[in-house]
């Protein structure tokens, strides 16, 4: 099944079911009552295309591509305002992260989506050494917009240990860690129907 091309019938539950099955906390999406408190509670609200409540409605309406390519879930800062206020106690933050992760897996992330890029770098960085090399990660992040801007930011920040740029240290059982990651990904992919 070519999952990332499928266009569900509008308002039929295929996409909702897909989300329930494959997205972390996705089974909560159906419980939203469209009050909009999450949308109003989000500090990043003004900067995104769709609010959580709208994303949930779009899921129910079967707007698969629009949802998965939306930048909304990439903007979440995990402030949890929405979760605290949601009258239906939906774990909105988690659902948004779940959707982001799912979109990433399907390769449907909007091009140049900064959070996604950061997350990818973060992940690659972590996966490589088993721990996060903050300096390399930050440099990669800052230099993505160009060399000069990056240097300025780093120098002004003065908060990183420049020595970490030379290799950085890994966790003790790096191979074991990488094996764990590979296995986890395999299990997760299987669960979400992306392989096998």
């Amino acid at each position: 099944m070519a999952t990332n091309l499928q266009t569900p019938a509008p308002y039929h539950n295929n996409f909702l079911r897909e989300v329930e099955e494959r997205v972390e906390e996705g089974e909560w999406v159906k419980m939203c009552m469209q009050c909009g408190v999450c949308a109003g509670s989000c500090p990043f609200g003004p900067h995104w295309e769709h609010s959580p409540q709208k994303i949930f409605m779009m899921i129910r309406a079967g707007k698969r591509e629009e949802v998965l390519t939306s930048d909304a879930m990439w903007m979440c800062t995990s402030c949890y305002n929405c979760v605290v206020r949601c009258p239906r106690q939906l774990p909105i933050t988690h659902i948004m992260h779940g959707l982001a992760s799912y979109a990433h897996r399907l390769g449907l992330v909007p091009k140049g989506q900064p959070t996604h890029e950061f997350a990818t770098m973060f992940w690659n960085n972590l996966a490589k050494k088993g721990r996060v090399n903050e300096l390399k990660l930050t440099l990669a992040l800052y230099f993505k917009d160009g060399l000069v801007a990056g240097i300025k930011t780093v120098v002004l920040a003065k908060r990183l240990n420049p020595m970490e740029i030379f290799g950085g240290h890994a966790i003790k059982d790096l191979k074991g860690f990488q094996a764990i990651i590979a296995k986890a990904r395999e299990i997760e992919d299987k669960k979400q129907g992306l392989t096998g």
Partner: peptide
């Protein structure tokens, strides 16, 4: 909602 009835 829990049973999957969609409300629009």
């Amino acid at each position: 909602q829990d049973k999957g009835v969609t409300f629009t």
